[in-house]
Amino acid sequence: MTTPTLDEVAQALSQMVADKMDIDVASIKPDSSLQSLGLDSLDTFDLIFSAEDHFKIKVPNDQIKIETLHDVSVLVHKLTIEQNK
């Protein structure tokens, strides 16, 4: 599998958030806080779960320190590189 760019990860995650939260993908900005998008802690776990499925990665518990969608994108992008080696 080709490793996705940070931009591709961010786009895919925005779409996941839009689907989960029933919101317009255009209203999601990369630096939006997850809280401002309506995600609580459970929704965040669910987003991480979907990202793990989509990108075939495993997010370790101690790395889930995220506030914005950009934080998630960076974390997921980093793990796709590390774990797809």
Binding site: D19, K20, M21, D22, G38, L42, D43
Partner: peptide, 8 residues
């Protein structure tokens, strides 16, 4: 319901 509500 919204998908967010019924999805969980």
């Amino acid at each position: 319901f919204s998908k967010h509500t019924y999805g969980m």
